[in-house]
Nucleic acid binder design. Structure first.
Length: 270
DNA sequence: AAGGATTCCTGTTGGC
DNA sequence: TGCCAACAGGAATCCT
């Protein structure tokens, strides 16, 4: 399930193959993603060189002189650079020809991903409302504290809301709340300033560490070369329901909070 | 306005 | 062993 570290890992892998090049072709094998791929996408993406590959939250931005292709991996999407001779895999929906030797393929079994075209991504309705980047300086505990006053939803739902901060999905939200010692079901408005400072620090540290080892591979995430990420071995609570807490040994609880499976320690997290 | 429920989809898993 | 229902999950969208 790609969260910010997996998307950033993907960005770093594909950028060197795309930047400065004009795709020779864009072939859409199946346009039925989260939203139908607009038929104009191929002509737009082949119109000029891709100047840069950026990331905003979990969106990848392929920028060229006409605008930007917004690529979202959804929950099962991946991008891979391979040889044109490598056989297409099941669920390869989009293919960019890079030169004679390489192709970029978008694979997405569940088709929750997206490829959208926009002439101005900053104004795009999906991107404009997004909150701060967790690894940038404007993401702070004080900001979380202020934004959460009066909020009755759980602190877990609050930090998974992209308007609060981008890129924190179910796995890293659980990990950060454990590291900060905060119970995921606690109302966001009842968490104090100091504890939000701890939480912001935990989010930063965990996402940064995950990026450094290529993300988390649970089942099938791989980078653009097909390699797994190694953060899984650093997970302290996610996927460990019923197993002992690594701090106090109490069996970890597993229950649904914010519509998602959530693992936490009733003793260490309050 | 806020927050919870629903929805899209397919591969994996668990029960019988 | 085989079949099928339940489940997982990002996040927009619907509903209250």
């Amino acid at each position: 399930m790609p969260e910010l570290p997996e998307v950033e890992t993907t960005r770093r892998g594909i950028a060197p193959w795309l930047e400065g090049r004009t795709p020779s072709s864009v072939v859409i094998h199946n346009p039925s993603l989260r939203w139908p791929i607009t038929p104009e996408l191929p002509e737009r993406l082949t119109a000029g060189p891709i100047a840069s590959v950026e990331r905003r939250g979990k969106y990848l931005l392929l920028n060229n002189p006409l605008g930007t292709a917004l690529v979202h991996l959804g929950m099962s999407g991946s991008l891979r650079v391979s040889s044109p001779e490598d056989p297409r895999r099941k669920h390869d929906h989009v293919e960019l020809g890079l030169d004679g030797e390489r192709v970029l393929r978008f694979n997405d079994p569940r088709r929750f991903g997206a490829w959208l075209w926009t002439s101005d991504w900053q104004q795009h309705p999906l991107l404009a409302p997004l909150g701060p980047e967790p690894l940038e300086v404007d993401f702070t505990g004080d900001r979380l504290y202020k934004g959460s006053r009066g909020r009755r939803a759980s602190v877990k739902a609050f930090i998974m809301d992209a308007k609060t901060v981008v890129g924190v999905g179910n796995i890293y939200a659980s990990e950060a709340l454990f590291q900060a010692g905060i119970h995921p079901g606690r109302p966001a408005g009842s968490v104090g300033r100091q504890r939000y400072r701890r939480l912001a620090e935990a989010i930063r540290e965990i996402l940064g560490n995950a990026i450094a080892v290529g993300g988390t591979t649970l089942r099938d995430f791989t980078d653009s070369s097909g390699n797994p990420g190694y953060f899984r071995q650093s997970l302290t609570v996610y996927g460990r329901g019923g197993e002992p807490c690594k701090i106090c040994g109490t069996p970890l609880k597993d229950r649904v909070i914010a519509q998602r499976s959530t693992v936490f320690c009733v003793r260490c997290q309050r």
